[in-house]
C-alpha cells in the first residue's frame, strides 16, 4: 500500500475518481452518455499532442512549438488538398499533414541534436517563426469549404445512442486514432531500445553516450515524431471544426504540457508513463468541461487547473524527499 501511494499515477487516479464522484453527486447529468462522449471527444486531440510531449519531456526537454506546427500543418494541408486534390481521400490528408509536421519537427531536431541547444529555447524561436511564416505566406483567411472526405470523416462515428431526452449522441471514429497513437507510443517507450534510450537520455545524458546509444538519432526521432503527431492532430482539428482557421490551436500548448506533468512526468526528465499522461489529459478535460456542469464560472477553470498542477508537483517533490530520507 505504501509503495502504491508513492506512485504518482496511483494517487492521481484516486483523486480523479473522487472528483468524478463529487461532480456526479452535484449534477447527475454528468454521468449521461452524451456528456461522457463529449469528454472522450475532447480528449482526442489533446491526448495525441500530449503523448508526443510526453516523449519530449521524458528525454529531459520541453517543446512548445508543437501547437504552431499543428496549426501550420492543418492550414497548409487544407490549402494543398483544395488546390491539388479536391477529391482526395482522408488518408492522403493525414499523410500530407503528418509529413508537414515531421519536416517542421526535423527543424527543431537539427537545432537540438545537431547544435546541442536546449529545446525550450529552440522551440520558442521556431514556434514564432513557423506561425509567422504561415500567416505571412500561406494565408490568414479561414477555409470553410474543406474537402468532402474530411467532412465525411467528421460525421463518422463508432458508437451511437439516443439519450433520455431523445437526442442522438455519437462517439467519433477519431477516437480510434487516439487509441492507435497510445498503443504505438506505449510500445515504443516500453519495448524498443529507442524508447529505453529516451528514458536513459532523460536520466543521464553522459551515461547514455558512454553506454553506446546514438543520442543524435534518438533526438531526431523525438522531435520528428512530435512534429508528425502535431500534423495529425492539426488535420483532426480541422475535421472536428469543419474548417481550417490558422489562428486556432496555438495557445493550448501550456494546458497540454500541464496534462503531461499532472500525469506524473518529471519536467527534469527521465520519468513519465503513457497511462499517467492519458490520466492527466482526462483530468484537465474533466475540469474544463465539468466545472460548467456544476455551475462554477468558467474563469475558475484556469485557477483550479493551476492549483492542481502546483499541488500535484509539490506532492511528488515531497514524496521524493521522504524517499531520500529513508535511504540515507
Amino acid at each position: 500500500m505504501k509503495k502504491l501511494l508513492q506512485q504518482h499515477e496511483f494517487v492521481v487516479t484516486i483523486v480523479f475518481f473522487l472528483v468524478v464522484i463529487l461532480i456526479g453527486a452535484i449534477n447527475p447529468a454528468f454521468f449521461s452518455i452524451g456528456n461522457i462522449f463529449s469528454l472522450l471527444k475532447s480528449m482526442i486531440i489533446r491526448g495525441i499532442l500530449a503523448l508526443g510531449v510526453l516523449i519530449v519531456i521524458i528525454s529531459g526537454n520541453v517543446d512548445i512549438s508543437f501547437t504552431a506546427i499543428s496549426a501550420f500543418a492543418m492550414y497548409t494541408t487544407s490549402k494543398i488538398m483544395l488546390a491539388l486534390f479536391p477529391e482526395g481521400g482522408l488518408l492522403l490528408a493525414f499523410a500530407i499533414g503528418g509529413l508537414i509536421g515531421l519536416l517542421l519537427g526535423s527543424i527543431n531536431a537539427s537545432f537540438v541534436a545537431g547544435m546541442k541547444l536546449p529545446a525550450l529555447i529552440v522551440s520558442l524561436g521556431t514556434s514564432s517563426a513557423i506561425r509567422g511564416f504561415m500567416l505571412a505566406f500561406i494565408g490568414v483567411k479561414i477555409i470553410n469549404n474543406l474537402p468532402a472526405s474530411l467532412i465525411a470523416y467528421s460525421r463518422s462515428y463508432i458508437a451511437k445512442f439516443t439519450d433520455a431526452s431523445g437526442k442522438i449522441v455519437t462517439l467519433p471514429s477519431a477516437i480510434i486514432m487516439l487509441i492507435a497513437v497510445t498503443i504505438i507510443v506505449w510500445f515504443i517507450l516500453r519495448y524498443t531500445m529507442l524508447g529505453r534510450g529516451v528514458y536513459a537520455l532523460g536520466g543521464d545524458p553522459v551515461s547514455t553516450e558512454r553506454a553506446g546509444f546514438n543520442i543524435k538519432a534518438i533526438q531526431y526521432f523525438i522531435y520528428c515524431f512530435m512534429g508528425f503527431l502535431s500534423g495529425i492532430a492539426g488535420v483532426l482539428h480541422s475535421v472536428f471544426m469543419r474548417n481550417a482557421n490558422p489562428f486556432d490551436i496555438v495557445g493550448t500548448e501550456l494546458i497540454v504540457i500541464a496534462s503531461v506533468v499532472l500525469g506524473g512526468a518529471s519536467i527534469t526528465g527521465g520519468k513519465g508513463t503513457v497511462y499517467g499522461t492519458l490520466l492527466g489529459v482526462a483530468f484537465t478535460v474533466l475540469i474544463e468541461n465539468s466545472l460548467i456542469i456544476i455551475g462554477v464560472p468558467s474563469y475558475w477553470q484556469k485557477v483550479v487547473i493551476g492549483l492542481i498542477i502546483v499541488v500535484s508537483t509539490a506532492a511528488s517533490a515531497l514524496r521524493e524527499k521522504f524517499a531520500k530520507l529513508e535511504i540515507s
Binding site: Y199, A200, G203, V206, T208, S266, G270, K271
Partner: peptide, 11 residues
Amino acid sequence: IYQDFSLFPNL
C-alpha cells in the same frame, strides 16, 4: 568504472 558510475538513476 568512472567516479560517477555512469548509471541511469531513473531506471
